[in-house]
Design a protein around this nucleic acid. Structure first.
Lengths: 362, 362
DNA sequence: ACAGCTTCTTGAAAGCTTTCATTTATGCCT
DNA sequence: AGGCATAAATGAAAGCTTTCAAGAAGCTGT
């Protein structure tokens, strides 16, 4: 591939001059400038990002570390980040951590040797990004944290207003007359899951509704977790008449559980999710969900990052994006008292075969 | 960050020796080796990938160029590629092209200056990857093409057996008794769309069923396209009793159209998709679809790539992965002749208000 | 036309590795 | 113990760019 030396020779100027016209780092008189540009055009010269990065102590890469591209919420964030990054001349290096702490560290350690301009991270479970970030910052790279925050995080953040979203969703369900709610929450150590749970509980409290701890189940943010926990919830005596799923994947799993148990949604059980994935409207029934702006989270994160790289040294930014309740058909009124159909025949404990009446609530 | 010079000084050896122990490029006697390793451990030294790449004329990056992460099929491929790449010490640089030829070129041009070991590409519409790839190969990088092939492609490929998959899906629909099928195909210039169409037509031919060209609609591989074209198909006089969607996103769009027209699936119209996205089982009704191993396509591509990088100079590989028909509930028997419900009231041409009987077929 | 000043241009150094030709050390044999 | 062959360690060059100090060229005013 063509290099500067060749361009310099072709244009009959020095290396330094070529560099200056390529980067606009000093004024070069027109005739020279033109000769250089012509040579650049002619051979399609593009500066080596490797050499440039080495010399400048910084490349135009942005490391993007996420749990798993395959999880439909994350690609939206990635895409948002990529669009802003690309438009500003930055490129994304994508790393999946699988929520695995060790893999996260491995990625972060190596990524650094590429001298990226920054890092956009959706932390894994038990991330100690805080320590790593310090070392990146020392090297002049900016780090912004998205969606969920690691322990003791003190840098820029972009999150959704999980608590309010969950609060509103729960309130909505409550307004339909449900009094015995179940929640299938995401991993307890993830701040987004925590905040959704908080919002859920706050809504309950305000309505003076009390539910036992067994009505709140914790699991991973995926279909399988949702399926398992929904099964568990629905086989309880005095099963919930409505379930709030910590995210849509969990909700999808719950839907599968409903189907398996022959429970109709929303006639027998209501369900509400979080994320409002593109496919939430496709399910049966169309899933009501809290919409969360993944794409914007990505763009916002990239924008902050780029501002930092360009010299913004202000105090940490904490962008909190609004959520919106998307009402579809998966939440209805609670079934009449005596209509609670028996369920859980497959697990077949003698208890669960006996119809129960639900505990009355104030 | 620590560099080799520091390690050399700490261990009391020369630069070259440090390099040799770090890379195992020459035998170093134990005492020295140990001193070097200790120093490396102590400061957590990691070689600069930038300097290394510059010197070696090659980095451990693999450029991954895809149309759009946001499109649920692609992340699976990305993930497969990332897993194999990571396990072999390679990292992925992700680029979205939006099927935009110009963006693809821009990415490809810049990516090259990072001296990646290779490129995994799902070409955009009208890609002329073939030309670009030549220049990558000249620089010693391998290029493998996934899912769809650009014009005149002569390199390694990993694709699904689109034609057979489509053939089997269509045959299955035919066996249910349908004789008037519609197809909503993907972009005509994409080889995967072409092959699916081919399979569809072959099945029809073998069953001696002839359909007019208006029953084959072409659109982009997304929900909106599916929605629009399904609407169009369903408002035809003698509407198809079953629709084969070029991919699941199109099928999802079609489902939306069914819903809007008040058509029940599969009672009024049958539908079958392609891809078998994770969410196909969640739709209403659960979507029958041709399953295509996205993850494996990614792993296979990465594996070939890595083999090439390691010196495999054999003739181009053309891996074709099998598809599998996933039968769920969206295909049923065709509705009885006289039950064709009127539809398309919204567009409201006088014709479409009149019930028609379908053209008889042999 | 020349001093003095400004504006351009230049060449070399530096950034961190790898690699190769050399030098130095080790071990074996007589 | 000395000589030789082999193995190990070294130092410098190269890879491509940016940047800085220094030199060259241009301009202004008298």
């Amino acid at each position: 591939m063509a290099n500067m030396k060749q361009i310099a020779k072709m244009a009959g100027v020095s290396l330094g001059t070529v560099s200056h016209v390529v980067n606009g780092s000093a004024t070069v008189r027109e005739p020279l400038r033109k000769r250089v540009m012509d040579a650049v055009e002619r051979v399609g010269y593009q500066p080596s990002q490797l050499a440039r990065g080495l010399r400048r102590d910084k490349t135009n890469m942005i490391g993007m570390v996420i749990p798993d591209v395959t999880n439909p919420f994350f690609p939206a964030v990635v895409r948002g980040a990529e669009d802003i990054a690309f438009a500003n001349g930055y490129r994304l290096m994508l790393c999946n951590t699988d929520n695995d702490h060790a893999k996260e560290i491995a990625h972060l350690n190596e990524l650094r040797t590429y001298l990226p301009s920054g890092l956009i991270v959706i932390p894994s479970n038990f991330s100690d990004l805080t320590a790593q970030a310090a070392s990146y910052r020392k090297a002049g790279a900016a780090v912004v944290c998205v969606d969920r925050l690691p322990r003791d995080w003190n840098g820029d953040t972009v999150t959704a207003d999980n608590e309010t979203g969950a609060y509103e969703a729960t309130s909505y369900v409550l307004r339909q007359g449900h009094t015995r709610l179940g929640m299938i929450s995401g991993p307890g150590n993830l701040t987004n899951a925590q905040n959704r749970l908080k919002g859920f509980k706050r809504a309950l409290q305000e309505s003076r509704i009390h539910i036992g701890p067994e009505y709140v189940q914790e699991t991973s943010f995926d279909k399988h977790g949702g399926y398992t926990k929904a099964l568990l919830l629905l086989r309880m005596i005095g099963r919930p008449t409505a379930i709030f799923a910590g995210n849509d994947m969990i909700a999808f799993g719950a839907l599968l559980a409903f189907r398996e148990l022959g429970l109709k949604c929303p006639e027998d059980v209501s369900l509400i999710g979080f994320d409002d994935l593109e496919l939430a409207e496709m399910t049966s029934p169309p899933l009501s969900s809290v919409s969360q702006p993944g794409y914007q989270m990505g763009t916002a994160a990239a924008q902050i990052l780029i501002d930092r790289v360009r010299g913004d040294h202000g105090p940490p930014e904490h962008i909190v994006l609004e959520t919106a309740l998307k009402i579809r058909d998966s939440v209805g009124v609670p079934p009449a008292e005596n209509s609670e159909r028996v369920v859980g025949a497959m697990g077949a404990t003698s208890e669960s075969r006996t119809p129960r009446r639900r505990a009355s609530t104030p």
